[in-house]
Design a protein around this nucleic acid. Structure first.
Length: 698
DNA sequence: GGTGCGACCTAA
DNA sequence: TTAGTTAGGTCGCACC
């Protein structure tokens, strides 16, 4: 008997979500949790093995319940034992293939080499460790000693004063081109250009006397005025009043490190071009340049990590932000005040500018953009560079950090690309249906400007949902579970509530911290708080009495994000919903299991609607349809045939994936759309029996 | 019905 | 026995 082993690897780069790599063979429980930054480049809605396998390997892998696996294993004949083994072997292989396909080993080794740290440290330690490794390598030969501030010194540190500039956008629909320009690695550029470093910081200038002499206020960093006098002319004072010596006096550690990093990155990118025929070398070089970019960007974070940091320095962090802010503001002023461009900055965030060029064509916009970029780059010290990012035509600026548009990256690009930031199409706290409806509506808006088309589309989707024809998968939320202890006492959130419920059934079923817990919202007695209406997807699939809460999804999920866009062009999408005829709720029941009669499918049909014409009727068939037996027979029979065909088709798909035609002991992967369709179709097939009885009675 | 707070996720 | 940062929007709930 083998002992249970647990290998837990937790590698965090930019706080990416967790990829859960599932359990392997029964007795040998190998449990690996890896945050893979290479996978999370694509943020997924869930990180189950099946979902990751689908997105990385582009193939569906079935999931069986432990019940099913045990039944196969323990079966007296042991005829199906191979299935259990096969299932686990497939998963083990899948895990390895996922690691291979994202080149996990190769990339991690490359990062290890680059930062000069151990392979395992790349995975299990954070970015501070990397910055330190690189920084100390440069500092050591120069005879520097790094001293982490004491607790007392930390307490004395003031909070940062400057915040990055985030302009309030002019929220509206823009049919003229909007340029998006941004400063390339702005914070690292600031460090290099102005020589910001621990080793060059002199301290804070409390005031500048009228004789042009610097006076220093009380600060942890301070130099005697006599020395300052000597250095006059060799000092740079950041607008926040912190002084640094210029690089001709002493070049800082951080600036030389970042300078090296950025230069090396340019070289690596150049050799990538040269060696693009060699694929494995290309992958290595790509990993290398990404690593360089990564380390450049977290260096700023290192200086201003005053909660968890080992060597924070507010003076440096604050100066970087302040100078960056000034740089951006200067660029904004220049753009607004240069008449030949006819341009206006309508939004900006930290290092980016959104420039409206009224009445310009796409070509003109590109040309003006190039001109702006060159001018701004020229007026700043090296290596500050404003880069032409893209042109939006058209676009919508909703609020700070939320916008969408059709994007052109180059002049010869014919087809625009849908590009959204911050809105629900890219957020994982709403369900896929919301994202889909919003994206489609925006696309129609951008392509046709025909509002009636959008209205019709939205209404159709609402109707579909109200009639219960929508796919459950599209209405599934998935939120991160943070662990029992990590919620505040009064917290009442779906992920926590569901976990509590699951734990009542099975004490071992607590999700892993960081795992995404899926749920849907169902109908219930009016007045119940939302949390009472939350169900796990498979509960809804198993219990025909539970129905998706169409009015919740429409009025609280789908319409508000749409309205935030369309109210900007003077539309009220809520009226679109109000105009719709209310669909009669066929099987609306209480959510309290005690109160609810277990309704069968046949009851559902016989008491509510005529299966042929959908009219309300107390009988099997309404009187008019009973009066036309041939028509009714054709209608019912053709529907039964359709269900059977669909079922067969779906079963065939499952067979190709699971290797078994028995859909009863089948896969239960909530990440597979075929599974949902199959459940619905099986339900339809059950009502076939009822149809048959009707047919016999005709 | 406004307001404050916690949870969650994203932009940069 | 280790941890990059802040700004910002939205939702649901409790409270007044």
């Amino acid at each position: 008997m083998l002992h249970a082993t647990e290998i837990k690897i937790n590698c965090r780069l930019l706080a990416p979500p967790i990829v859960k790599i599932e359990r392997t063979i029964r007795h040998l429980m190998v449990n690996i949790v890896i945050d893979m930054p290479f996978i999370s480049q694509v943020t997924l809605n869930g990180y189950s093995f099946e979902n990751v396998a689908f997105h990385v390997l582009h193939e569906r892998i079935p999931l069986y319940t432990f019940r099913t696996l045990s039944d196969w294993w323990d079966h007296r004949t042991s005829l199906n034992r191979w299935r259990t083994v096969d299932h686990y072997v497939r998963r083990c292989r899948g895990n390895v293939r996922i690691l291979e396909s994202v080149d996990f080993i190769g990339r991690t080794s490359e990062l290890a080499r680059l930062f000069g740290i151990l392979f395992f440290s790349v995975i299990c330690r954070g970015s501070q460790y990397r910055v330190e490794s690189m920084m100390l390598r440069i500092a050591k030969p120069m005879n520097y000693i790094a001293v982490s501030p004491s607790i007392e010194q930390r307490a004395l540190m003031r909070a940062p004063e400057t915040i990055p500039l985030v302009m309030e956008p002019e929220s509206r629909f823009y049919s003229d081109p909007v340029l998006v320009l941004d400063f390339q690695s702005l914070y690292p550029s600031m460090i290099i250009a102005y020589n910001y470093c621990f080793s060059t910081c002199l301290g804070r200038v409390s005031c500048l006397s009228e004789y042009g002499e610097f006076k220093f206020g009380a600060t942890s960093l301070c130099v005697p005025p006599s020395l300052l006098k000597k250095l006059e002319g060799d000092i740079h004072v950041c607008p926040n009043g912190v002084a640094f010596v210029k690089s001709n006096v002493r070049k800082g550690i951080l600036p030389s490190m970042l300078d090296d990093i950025l230069q090396t990155r340019i070289m690596v990118k150049a050799s990538m071009k040269r060696w693009k025929s060699d694929k494995s070398l290309g992958r290595m070089l790509d990993a290398r340049q990404l690593g360089l970019k990564l380390i450049a960007n977290v260096t700023f974070g290192y200086t201003s990590a005053h909660f968890s940091g080992r060597m924070p320095c507010v003076e440096i962090g604050d100066s970087i932000v302040r100078k960056a802010r000034e740089t951006l503001e200067r660029a904004i002023d220049l753009v607004n005040n240069t008449p030949r461009w006819g341009a206006r900055v309508v939004y900006g965030d930290t290092d980016s500018l959104f420039v409206l060029i009224k009445g310009a064509t796409k070509e003109q916009a590109f040309n003006i953009g190039k001109d702006i970029v060159d001018t701004v780059t020229a007026m700043n010290p090296k290596p500050v560079k404003l880069k032409f990012e893209k042109v939006y035509l058209p676009c919508v600026l909703q609020t700070k950090k939320r916008y969408v548009g059709y994007m052109y990256e180059s002049l010869n690009q014919k087809e625009p690309v849908f590009d959204a930031k911050g809105i629900e199409t890219v957020r994982r706290d709403s369900c896929p249906a919301v994202a889909k409806v919003l994206e489609k509506s925006l696309r129609v808006l951008f392509e046709t400007r025909d509002l009636s088309l959008i209205k019709r589309f939205v209404q159709r989707q609402c109707t579909k949902l109200m009639e219960g024809r929508a796919s459950l998968q599209d209405f599934t939320f998935a939120k991160e579970y943070r662990g029992m202890k990590n919620y505040k006492p009064g917290a009442c959130v779906p992920a926590l509530e569901l976990t509590r419920r699951m734990l009542r059934e099975d004490r071992r079923s607590e999700p892993r911290v960081g795992e995404r817990v899926p749920y849907v919202v169902v109908y219930g007695s009016p007045g119940l708080p939302l949390i009472q209406l939350v169900r796990r997807p498979h509960e809804v699939l198993q219990d025909p009495g539970l129905r998706l809460n169409a009015s919740y999804y429409i009025t609280k999920q789908i319409l508000p994000p749409l309205n935030r866009v369309f109210s900007l062009i003077g539309l009220d999408v809520f009226t679109w919903y109000a105009e719709l005829p209310r669909v009669v709720r066929v099987a609306q029941m209480s959510t309290d299991p005690g109160e609810r009669k277990k309704g069968t499918i046949s009851q559902y049909f016989s008491t509510m609607t005529c299966p042929v014409c959908q009219e309300l009727t107390p009988a099997d068939l309404c009187t008019s349809c009973r009066a036309r037996p041939q028509l009714s027979t054709v209608s019912l029979a053709s529907r039964m045939r359709k269900w059977e065909r669909t079922h067969q088709h779906l079963a065939e798909i499952c067979y190709s994936c699971c290797g078994s035609r028995d859909t009863r002991l089948g896969c239960v992967s909530l990440d597979c759309p075929v599974f949902y369709k199959l459940v619905l179709c099986t339900r339809d097939l059950k009502s076939s029996q009822h149809f048959r009885r009707i047919l016999e009675s005709l």
